[in-house]
Amino acid sequence: MTLTLNIPDPVLRRLQSLCTDVPRAVLEGFAVESYRTGTLSCAEIGDLLGHTSSWDTQAFLAEHHAWPAPTLEEVTSDIASLHNTRVP
């Protein structure tokens, strides 16, 4: 699929001053946010970005500090673990 975005010229100039490949930067930004929100999996991010290994995808996500948002169950479990490991 090909996607066309209309970016106002002042915004485009600003983006071009920050990076040499604006379409790739937009795609990577979408990928990072999609992973953080749980919309796309790590494997899907790898496919989207054309990575040849899961290591490349994991390195990309780590470089962008992209971690999936924790679920309520994960937070509850972490809190319970902290309460159980507290030193009196």
Rank of each mutant, 00 (worst) to 15 (best):
T57L: 02
L3H: 11
L5R: 09
E28W: 10
E33R: 15
T76F: 04
E74V: 03
G46T: 08
L40V: 06
N6G: 08
P23Q: 08
V11Q: 03
T52C: 12
V22G: 04
E28H: 09
L48I: 01
T52I: 13
A43P: 02
P23I: 10
R86S: 10
A25E: 12
D9E: 14
E74F: 02
H83Y: 10
A80P: 01
G50P: 07
V11H: 01
T52W: 09
H83L: 15
S17K: 09
L18A: 14
Y35E: 05
P88W: 12
F30M: 13
N84A: 15
L72K: 13
F60R: 08
E28G: 02
E28P: 03
D78E: 14
V75K: 07
G38R: 05
G38I: 04
I45H: 02
R24C: 01
L12R: 04
A59E: 11
A31K: 01
R13G: 00
S41R: 08
L27H: 04
T39F: 09
N6M: 11
G29Y: 08
V11Y: 01
H65K: 12
T57G: 00
T57W: 00
D47E: 14
N6W: 09
G46L: 09
S41D: 07
G38F: 06
L72V: 14
D9M: 08
H83R: 14
V26G: 03
F30S: 07
T52V: 14
L5C: 05
T71S: 15
V11A: 04
S81C: 07
E74C: 03
P10W: 10
S34M: 02
Y35A: 06
S17A: 15
A69C: 03
S17P: 00
T71D: 05
S41N: 05
Q58F: 03
S41G: 06
S41E: 09
C42K: 13
Y35P: 03
D56W: 05
P10N: 13
D21W: 02
E33S: 08
P68T: 07
G29W: 11
E44G: 11
M1G: 15
T57P: 01
W55S: 12
P88T: 15
E28S: 07
D56Y: 07
G46W: 06
Y35R: 03
G38K: 06
A66R: 02
D47P: 02
L82K: 05
S41L: 10
E73I: 08
A59Q: 11
P68N: 04
E44Q: 15
L5M: 10
V87L: 15
V32Y: 05
S34V: 01
M1W: 09
D21M: 01
S77Q: 13
W67T: 12
R36W: 10
H65Y: 10
R24M: 11
P10I: 07
